[in-house]
Design a protein around this nucleic acid. Structure first.
Lengths: 216, 216
DNA sequence: ACTTGCCTTTGTGTATACACAACAGAAAAT
DNA sequence: ATTTTCTGTTGTGTATACACAAAGGCAAGT
């Protein structure tokens, strides 16, 4: 057997990130134990691990629930994401190896194709790969891991907004600017372009949520 | 009772950070359970939590040990720390509220005092407070938390180097430059000064470890 | 003397059982 | 009728017990 904890935590992670378990959902150990056909022990460890990734919140004696950050908190997280991505982009520009450039251009093209066919899901995937490539392209694996982790944590709050086709095209334009700056080896430009690209997402998120009443 | 897990994880965290449990130390559950007078269950949860903070490493079926990153990995971590601190400094400069400036100047003075009396331990504490003030001063609490966490993770690898009094004085000079830039509201200068300040630590660490043979 | 296979021991992974805190609902008192 | 307290229920925190994998040592065979 390959470890029940791994399976449980990965399954829950996916469901949280995909919105199947929305923010604020209570995660009760007995229920999860029965669902996965195991005892509470591995469930508890899986929840601890998710708490580590920042996806759930463990309150003392009050159970576990899917993290439900305030709007302000989410905006803060997007700001940090923007800075991390900006650093990655700057480091990418410093290296700008032919392989890296080829990879970026490839994902950029896939983004274009998805945008043209108006497929938000395909665009979402290509967009994600594009960003991951920039993380890895920084040449700093620790930085890449941190960026990837925060990207994951923000996924539940970002998925919605790419539905709008207008946003898809604008995002594409921004990507092009980033790649152009990296190609030119202009670290400053790449940094600024990437930071703005992410910050816009944060603002969009604020606009998006402003439509709804505050959630508990 | 205030939760055994909290006490165990905090105690172990302190001991790891202070070097009482050096990198690579094996942490065996039965031994820890006996030491803290509890069963293995809370010990396991404490280890999970430490793994979350990135202080220990959990290998499947092969136990837990204090994280023992390669030199290259540590340098990468210092690079990310440098970038996070640089962002904090830039945001500090953007705000530059009188209270913040007063706080920074206060800690700077305490650093000076510690340096003059040649007390590395006092300098270490004042230095830490100075940096924490910059994190908080960014106005982004999520950023501050992330920076604090990484600061903690790097502590086991940083404590040694401030013993050298020459490094203490140089560090002080760098702090002054950062504060001056923040006072002037010059975000770019603050960012650069703080980044260099941390990067030097990373380089120093490389030099430091180069003296020894490679650790397992 | 060296290698190989078995066995013991050690330590982790999971299940089960019990203790206790927190919440909810009902009953009693004002 | 409202408030308060008591109690039952639910769910978390910890302990104990068992299952199993992995590492190390010992013995036997070459």
């Amino acid at each position: 057997m390959t470890g029940a904890v791994d399976e449980i935590s990965e399954t829950l992670e996916t469901e949280i990130v995909e919105g199947i378990l929305p923010p604020g959902t209570r995660l009760e150990e007995p229920a999860l134990a029965e669902r996965f056909g195991v005892s509470r022990t591995p469930v508890r460890e899986a929840l601890q691990r998710l708490s580590a990734s920042g996806l759930v919140e463990l309150k003392r004696r009050r159970g576990t629930q899917v993290l439900n950050p305030s709007i302000g908190r989410i905006v803060e997280m997007f700001e940090v994401m923007a800075e991390l991505e900006a650093v990655c982009a700057r480091l990418c520009a410093r290296r700008a190896s032919p392989e890296l450039l080829a990879t970026l251009r490839d994902w950029l093209k896939r983004c274009e194709q998805a945008a043209e066919s108006g497929d938000p899901s395909a665009y979402y995937d290509a967009n994600r790969s594009f960003h991951l490539a920039i993380y890895k392209g920084s040449g700093n694996s620790f930085l890449a891991e941190q960026a990837e982790l925060l990207h994951l944590r923000l996924t539940p709050f970002r998925r919605q907004q790419l539905r709008l086709p207008r946003r898809m095209r604008q995002s594409l334009t921004e990507h092009s600017a980033v790649v152009a700056a990296i190609e030119a080896g202009d670290g400053q430009a790449a940094e600024t372009a990437q930071r703005d690209h992410i910050l816009i997402q944060g603002e969009r998120f604020g606009d998006f949520l402003a439509q709804f009443s505050a959630r508990s």
